[in-house]
Amino acid sequence: MSELDLANAPADVRPLPPARPPFSLSKLWRNTGVRRLVILAALAAIWQGAALWQDNPLLFPTFTDTVSAFVEATRSEGMLWSALASLTVLLKGYAIAVALALVLVSGAVAIPVLRDVLQTLTAMFNPLPAIALLPLAMMWLGLGESALLLVLVHAVLWPFALAALSGFDQVPETQRLVGRNYGLRGPAYVAQILLPAALPSILSGLKIGWAFAWRTLIAAELVFGVSSSQGGLGWFIYRNRNELLTDRVFAGLATVILIGLVVEMVLFRVIERRTVVRWGLQR
């Protein structure tokens, strides 16, 4: 069958660059990972220089001191266990909030009144920083995991619901009709048509929710630990500040940054590549 419109070649196929020697610097520089590493190394060098010049390890430890404090805290202080405790609480709150938001948004899609309710609630609660709820959460639920969970759910629920709702609203009319044509209704329709079609917005909502949750949790843990037995990462930072172990405070902060980066740059990037980028919904 003759097919005149078989422009089937992927758009990203470009002519090969001219042959180069295998280990060229400029070729290496074009790798994003390499560039980032070089920038990070430069920042570390500036840090080291500034700290040596300041010569005040109590307030501003050097890079190398921070690295050794990181290693030591990991070995003897169980810093990674603290991080794990933080992440466990975070994932619980995150999962509750995402599930709740999806239920709310599905309802809002189906029932016009619920849409108004959800939009009013998001407009009200979105500007309210989650950490501002912590005093109230502590009064209601005491110093414990449930108070943290309340704050976390608040941090994730509204921005994620907003993103998911706008994603559902943007699903092309034709794809909705296709789903209805096959007799899909209710939860099956949401799961098989709306959710995948809205995935770009949902993923970006998940990313925003993750960033909010991580910041909120660390901030909340600065006030009290996750539980009596195992404090979280924020608590680790707070404890070491009280003992003036500034290099460990820096190590704790670095861990917060590292975990944030890994989730954002590795986990979400991989999910995006496997889904929305692969489907041509996002570049």
Binding site: V178, N181, I193, A197, L199, L281
Partner: peptide, 20 residues
Amino acid sequence: SGPGPDRIVVFQEFDQLLPW
């Protein structure tokens, strides 16, 4: 009264295929 797979529609729009 409602849609059903006894009547399948082919639309004009190219986005009728599910992109995922």
